[in-house]
Amino acid sequence: MRKLWGVLLFCFGTLPVFAGDANELFYLLRARVLLVKDYTADVKMKINVTYMRVPQLSGTLYFKSPDKMRLERHGGLSIFPKKNTNLTLGNLIPDGKVIVLDMGYAEKAGKKLRILKIVPEDDQSNIVITKLWVDEANLLILHTESTTRNDGTVTMDLEFGNYIPYALPDKVTIFMDVKDYKLPNGLAMDYNDELDIAEKAKKEKATKGTIQITYLKYTINTGLDDDLFK
C-alpha cells in the first residue's frame, strides 16, 4: 500500500505540463483530490459576513471524505456554512458521471489557467454546474465557481504551497451568497445601533460573504473514525 502511495505521489508531485483533453484532465483532477481520504489540520478561520462579527477562530479541523468536517476549538464555538455548501474542494467537484466542457484558457493572478465547465449527469445532485480554473503544470485547481441547487453560487480561491503533492491548499477563500439576518428589536433590545446604521448601507448591497481558512499543518490519511464527527 505504501509503495502504491509513493508511486501516486511521485506521479502527481512531478507531473509534467498536462496537454490532454478536458475529460481526461477533469478525471485526473478528481482522482487526485479523492486521494486524500481524511486529514487533521491546524487552521485559522476568518469569517467575513456583513451581519457577523466573529473574531479569527483557531482550532483543529478534521475532514473525512467525502463530506464529513468538524472544527474542534477546545471548548469554543465553531461556525460552518450549512453542510451542502461544504468547505472542501471534494464537495464542489461533482461525483458520478459528468459532462466536461473545455472553455479554453484565461489569465488569473498572472497564471495561464485552463477552464473546465462540469455538468453532473445526475439531476438530483446539489451542484448544477461547476467551473474549474486549472493550473495544468501542477495539476491543481486554483479557482472554482459552483452553482448549487440549494445554496446559491459558491466561489472558491485556493492557494497552494507546502502540500502540493496531496493537492491540499495552504489557504482557501470561499465566497458565498448570504441571506439577510434580522431579529425583532423587542427580543434583541439593542443598545447602540450606530455601528449597525453605519454599516447598513454596505449591508443592503452586500449579498456575498467570505470565509478564509489558513491551513498551518496537515496530518493526512490517518484513518479518522466516524465517531469523531458526531
Binding site: 451581519y51 457577523m52 462579527r53 469554543g76 439576518y181 434580522k182 431579529l183 445601533d193
Partner: peptide, 21 residues
C-alpha cells in the same frame, strides 16, 4: 452551564466573543 465563547444576538448583527475576552 460551563464557560465558552459567548454569542450576542443583536437585531441585525450576530456577534461571537471569545471566552477569554
Amino acid at each position: 452551564f460551563g464557560k465558552g465563547d459567548m454569542i450576542n444576538l443583536k437585531s441585525e448583527t450576530f456577534i461571537i466573543i471569545l471566552k477569554n475576552d
